[in-house]
């Protein structure tokens, strides 16, 4: 029974993925064909259809790289290169990851602090909350390059400027989620704490904080993904420096499409890993707190 539900869940996903790959191949052939035809005409080469298709899928700088080219590039740059090498994806991912994690940590801390302030200080609730929401309608990602360049002008470089962008992007989901979480205890539970003569401090640690844990982890999943986006975009203006974002930019400058796609895949893998780790953390906390799986 269980394996059957598993199969019925995984089957459609695999089918869709397979369809996407087939479409991808078709698109690669179709989009790369004009350039290849041009190349063949100039080189006076006549090839059969199969040969032609094979050639469209193995161009060095294709418009649409074929899946296997990207996979090969990712594999080579991940496993076959020295980790310290400038071309290693592991190296670039590590650079991005470090600023993502720093920004995520600060962002989570800031978000929790703001939430605690909002829940306990009425003036903050009324005055700050609208601005927190408004802060996210600002396309803040757009100023990421400016923050990096300006901070570089006063000799603050490296991790901190990128982490700042990540912080800005990741504090919001945590703050909003935690405000909801810290307010999630029912009146009846708060009343119980009052009958125990619990202080504000005790109510906070023994009731509000445990109640907010599921909210915290849900918003942390969003926050870690946002943090990664922030780190990648913040790397765009740093030019030659390392990181997935700069790899994307370099790829776009030199039309190295395969490298670009590989960087994109690396970023996606990073996102999946980060979100999964937060998810596992959530499950561990749930278990420690005695939540039964639904």
């Amino acid at each position: 029974m269980r394996s059957e539900t598993f199969a019925s869940r995984i089957g459609p996903v695999l089918t869709i993925v397979a369809t996407i790959i087939v479409i991808w191949y078709a698109a690669a052939v179709w989009m790369n064909a004009p350039f290849q035809r041009d190349l063949d005409r100039r080189g006076d080469v006549t090839s059969t259809t199969m040969e032609f298709i094979a050639k469209t899928l193995s161009q060095p700088k294709p418009i649409v790289p074929a899946p296997h080219q990207v996979a090969q590039n990712v594999f080579e740059n991940t496993f076959l290169r020295k980790v310290s090498s400038n071309r290693s994806l592991v190296y670039h991912s590590w650079v991005t990851l470090s600023s993502t994690l720093a920004g995520f940590a600060f962002g989570t801390l800031l978000g929790v602090l703001i939430a605690v302030g909002i829940v306990h200080v009425k003036a903050l609730d009324r005055s700050l909350m609208p601005w927190i929401i408004a802060s996210q309608t600002v396309p803040i990602l757009a100023i990421a390059p400016m923050v990096v360049v300006v901070l570089a002008a006063i000799n603050v470089t490296g991790l901190i400027p990128k982490a700042l962008i990540s912080t800005y992007l990741s504090f919001f989901p945590v703050a909003v989620g935690m405000v909801k979480g810290l307010r999630s205890p029912d009146i009846i539970q708060l009343d119980l704490m009052r009958t125990y003569n619990a202080s504000r401090w005790q109510t906070f640690w023994k009731l509000r904080v445990p109640a907010s844990m599921p909210f915290l982890f849900t918003s942390m999943k969003v926050a870690v993904a946002a943090s990664l986006v922030g780190a990648i975009v913040a790397e765009l203006p740093t030019g030659a420096a390392a990181g997935i974002g700069s790899k994307l930019l370099a790829g776009s400058y030199y039309s190295q499409t395969i490298d670009m796609w590989a960087a994109l895949i690396a970023g996606s893998l990073l996102a999946v890993i980060l979100v999964t780790i937060v998810g596992i953390g959530a499950r561990l906390i749930d278990r420690r707190m005695g939540v039964r799986p639904a």
Binding site: S8, R9, G11, P12, V13, T15, I16, V17, L141, K221, A225, L228, V229, I232, V233, I244, G245, L248, L249, G251, S252, T257, M260, W261, A263, L264, G267, S268, A271, V272, V275
Partner: peptide
């Protein structure tokens, strides 16, 4: 069938740094 296939992929995609497709 499409829903069961697309929804997990859609959820996954919303966590990915899609902004990276900009240069492409």
């Amino acid at each position: 069938f499409l829903r069961r296939g697309l929804l997990p992929i859609g959820n996954l995609m919303s966590a990915l740094p899609i902004i990276g497709v900009a240069p492409i």
